[in-house]
């Protein structure tokens, strides 16, 4: 029994506490910052229930709501912090600031809830304690080796998101193509809707496995890219799609080394 526990503990540590290059996480940080900046405009429009006045449905009673001026100042501050995250200046501080400001809006009122904002908030939290600024950053020389815990954690989170998104769709109405038709504004039951609905579920179920398997991860990334491109073009989901596709670099470079940057890493 003890031997099994030790073996399992060793595998756990080897996975979560492996050392590698910060390049992949830094590349993700850049794409994620662009996605976050893109999503801010949307978010500012959809999250106005964080502003005081009128009806509110708080997650936590007593959570401070914002005046209109504070609300827009908060989004302006997020834009500034997003830019710092993008260029790699004060990366942890920028991510921590984004985590606080995005969290303030997310938790201010349940009427604000968006799955996309929730994902962005969690990733900001992970980046705030990560070495994402240790490469591809303006303010410092790149580090040769860091713990890959944050890279693994974001990859695990992306896996969970795909898995639950697929499970949520496994019901007769979605499988028939009717839900997809309604979402896409196709009230008539077009013949392609049912195969498309099945394809979305199949891809969302396959990606959580295929992205982790060395032999399939490149094909999986291409298929995922195609799916998110379709989401972006048909549903105007740009920021979320970009963030999800950007996360593929974390799977494609499991040791953190970007192929084109491998030789430039200082020893």
């Amino acid at each position: 029994m003890q031997a099994a526990v030790d073996r399992w503990g060793a595998k756990w540590s080897a996975f979560w506490f492996a050392e590698g290059s910060p390049q992949a996480l830094a590349a993700f940080r850049i794409v994620f910052a662009v996605a976050l900046l893109e999503d801010l405009r949307n978010s500012a429009g959809l999250c106005r229930y964080a502003i005081e006045g009128g009806y509110h449905w708080p997650y936590l009673s007593g959570w401070p709501l914002l005046s209109p001026q504070q609300f827009y100042a908060l989004f302006a501050a997020q834009a500034g912090l997003g830019f710092l995250l993008l260029v790699g200046l004060r990366t942890r501080l920028a991510a921590a600031g984004l985590f606080l400001l995005q969290g303030w809006v997310l938790w201010a009122d349940r009427l604000n809830f968006r799955n996309h904002g929730y994902l962005f908030w969690m990733i900001c939290g992970i980046l705030a304690v990560s070495p994402a600024g240790s490469a591809l950053a303006l303010h410092r020389r790149p580090s040769a080796s860091v713990r890959l815990t944050a890279q693994r954690l974001i990859a695990a989170e992306v896996t969970i998101v795909y898995l639950w998104a697929a499970i949520q769709k496994v019901h007769p109405a979605y499988l028939s193509g009717r839900v997809l038709g309604e979402i896409l504004g196709q009230p008539d039951q077009a013949l392609w809707l049912q195969p498309a609905a099945w394809a979305v579920i199949a891809v969302e179920l396959a990606l959580p496995v295929a992205l982790w398997v060395p032999r399939t991860r490149e094909v999986a990334a291409l298929v995922g890219l195609a799916m998110h491109a379709a989401f972006a073009l048909t549903l105007n989901i740009y920021g979320f799609s970009l963030a999800m596709v950007g996360s593929y670099v974390l799977f494609l470079a499991p040791d953190g080394h970007l192929p084109f940057a491998r030789k430039s890493t200082p020893s």
Binding site: Y118, W164, H171, A173, I183
Partner: peptide
């Protein structure tokens, strides 16, 4: 329930 935090985006009518 709306079931927040459940990744149910674009899954239901």
């Amino acid at each position: 329930t709306r079931a927040d935090f459940s990744w149910s985006m674009y899954s239901h009518s």
